[in-house]
Amino acid sequence: MIYVRDNKKYSTDPDRLRCKLFGYATKTVGDKILSNVKVGTGIIPSIKKKSMFSVILRTVIKSKTAFAGLIIILLLILSAIFANVIAPPVFDDRLGDYLPSWSRQDLNNRFQQPNMEFWFGTDNFGRDIFARVIHGSRISLQVGAIAVSISAAIGVMLGAISGFYGGRCDNVLMRILDMALAIPNILLAIAIAAALGPGLINVMIAVGIGGIPGYARIVRGSVMSVKEQEFVEAAKSSGATDATLIFRHILPNCMSPVIVTMTMGLGSAILAAAGLAFIGLGVSPPSPEWGAMLSDGRRFMREFLPMVVFPGGAIALVVLGFNMFGDGLRDALDPRLNQR
């Protein structure tokens, strides 16, 4: 049976129907309307409710740059996950064993220009640059994700406490963070990395700490505006504790700027980590860190470009990807630019 309401036809398929209200049942033969009966408990179709996630995804995909960014990020993630499939270990004749493709040296094949066997050529130790770039994505993604998590976790906590309690606590926390904010991010990271010494974990900590004040400021502002809203007072009036208020009611409503900042922050964290590795404060040399590769290649830049172009290009592409995706995400999450 087909119901007609507001000149639209709806089937009585139960999946599409939800509430029973009034409606019109129309009986037709061909184009001719035989009867148009108002039925007391007619049926209107369930309103297709779009989840926020699908709305955001659609907005992001609609924007070309954001979509390109998303593709780059997906490629990065795939190459990190499947690094051993894309660049599998190579059998070494001399040792009679498999060696990781990114560290296997072949001094007979140094400085090879890109060819069918070595897509990105080989470096000064005869290592496959393509394998190194692919495996480098693991380090970059790891450093980026963990550094951003460190700064977001601590920054969000500090911002939430400072914004929620206000007063003296807010003043003290914010002044301390202002001091940290006065030092340029990369400089702070260099100082911390120099103090902690080289190594993957230390790089993550160094880059992560540098990002804390930014998150704290953003979250503090959002918390201050959200905590004035009526639903927070309503929650208070139903006996919610401060922790419930902050974690269940206020923070989830402050997340969209944090998500955008985290996306953009991933790009800059990767860049900062590469920068630290480039000046020798980051991941130690044999690992295929893009910044370290760039640093190694610098010496041969005039004669042999591939050692510089490919890791450098990888850094640039990934940072670009995160920034484009972050931009798109911001547009999608910003209610003022709401054109859905």
């Binding site: 809203q229 009526e230 639903f231 309503a234 269940r248 989830p252």
Partner: peptide
């Protein structure tokens, strides 16, 4: 309109 938490 404002006394319910929009994200729960």
């Amino acid at each position: 309109m404002t006394s319910l938490n929009p994200v729960m």
